[in-house]
Amino acid sequence: MHPALQGLLTILIGVGGCVGYFYFSNQLLDKVLFPAKGPNIGRNINRANMIRPWLFLAPAIAALGLYLAYPVVATFWLSVTDRDQGGAFVGLTNYSQMLAEPKFIEALRNNMLWLIIVPAASTAFGLLAAQLTDRIKWGAIAKSLIFMPMAISFVGAGVIWKLVYETRPVDVEQIGVLNAVYLALGGTEPQTWLTIPLWNSIFLMIVLIWIQTGFAMVILSAALRGIPEETIEAAIVDGANPFQIFFKIKVPQIVGTIIVVWTTITIVVLKVFDIVFAMTNGQWETQVLANYMYDKMFRAGDWGVGSAAAMIIMLLVTPILVWNVYNARKEMR
């Protein structure tokens, strides 16, 4: 069968199944189990209304439990067992084995660099772009162009930037912008940018910064607009210059939003996989945790160490998770 037809058919089955479930389970509840008629009408309606929320929630709870909650436990269990010994409990052996690996230490070090540089740079550029575009007429167009990389896949962005970093032999004309600029500015010979340790990690980070800046800009721009006019007017009357207004009046009022942007990008960074996978695959000392984990799990087939690496990512996410839950609960009260 043609894949398009097959796709269409499965869409119909999947969607039809969902709609059917909700419709018929409600019908069953209202018409068969607890019909709103007869001698027990009041009790029946109450019972039906007690059960209905769970009817609405059931598919979501099942999917969330199975696809997100259960794997956390299962991965933890995998990380303390050994696949080769038939899943026997081995305690922290996988972790100690992993810590002894130079590649893991490299991944951890690179991840720390990513965690510092990418959120900081994206937020800074986003704030700059938000502040600048809010002041001009064609700001909306400028914004949507800076926001555009958001729609591009990490893999697509990898290809786009690989062309920027492309290297040709010394006697041939350079087709990568970076080398062309480098030579025009007096560089002696073209560099293979992605093979220079530490710098290459930065070049990979630039790809993510390029993508995430738009996100930061959109959110921070909304926050900047939410600042009460009076505070700015008061500052102008007091003779503050534009920089003072920005850093001393505006930024302190949107600190909360800046933190939200920062943590959201931090989570993206922790999961970053595609960019490294597509551009260097962790060679030349560019390894990061998510790619290291993929290597271990699916190339080396070492589930124990791979799961241990995944648990490290989980551990790094946990503070943000707790903070988010705390804030959400505070807000609901």
């Binding site: 696809y67 997100l68 794997p71 991965t75 791979g306 996410v317």
Partner: peptide, 18 residues
């Protein structure tokens, strides 16, 4: 609260078990 928590759980954890 559980939904908010699951919002940030890395899907990397889900690969092998699933």
């Amino acid at each position: 609260a559980a939904v908010v928590a699951l919002l940030v759980v890395p899907l990397q954890l889900a690969l092998i078990p699933l």
